[in-house]
């Protein structure tokens, strides 16, 4: 197997993923207050983005794969977003 440009990309992606994992674990022990729920999710989203773009080969020309990869997450956002309108405001109303 030739050591082509693609393989280098894969290995760099892998290294970045591990790095992000390390950051995630380290930050878990830092007093970052109210952010402690959001930071891991943000890091996970970045990792997921890298995996999908590089390992699942989404990068490159726009294609139909983008649509359906995006659709899953878009619909997930509908579910999470609209159900959380209830949980965020249930106690607040009736006033």
């Amino acid at each position: 197997m030739k050591l082509g440009g693609q393989i280098v990309t894969f290995v760099i992606a892998w290294a970045v993923l591990l790095l992000l994992l390390g950051i995630n674990v380290l930050l878990a022990y830092q007093p970052i207050g109210g952010l402690h729920g959001f930071v891991p999710i943000g890091i996970a989203a970045t990792q997921a983005f890298i995996i999908m773009a590089i390992f699942m080969k989404l990068r490159g020309r726009p294609s139909l794969k983008w649509v359906f990869a995006g659709a899953g997450f878009f619909w997930l956002m509908i579910l999470l977003g609209l159900s959380s309108t209830d949980y965020m405001t249930r106690a607040a109303w009736p006033l």
């Binding site: 674990v25 830092q30 007093p31 402690h36 729920g37 891991p40 999710i41 890091i43 996970a44 995996i51």
Partner: peptide
């Protein structure tokens, strides 16, 4: 199969974030 495998990996990345790192700093 590769797509499926990497997807299972992606799910885990999110599960990890939801389960392990939260609540250790406080």
């Amino acid at each position: 199969v590769g797509l499926y495998w990497s997807f299972v990996d992606t799910v885990w990345v999110f599960l990890f974030a939801l389960i392990y790192p939260i609540g250790r700093s406080g």
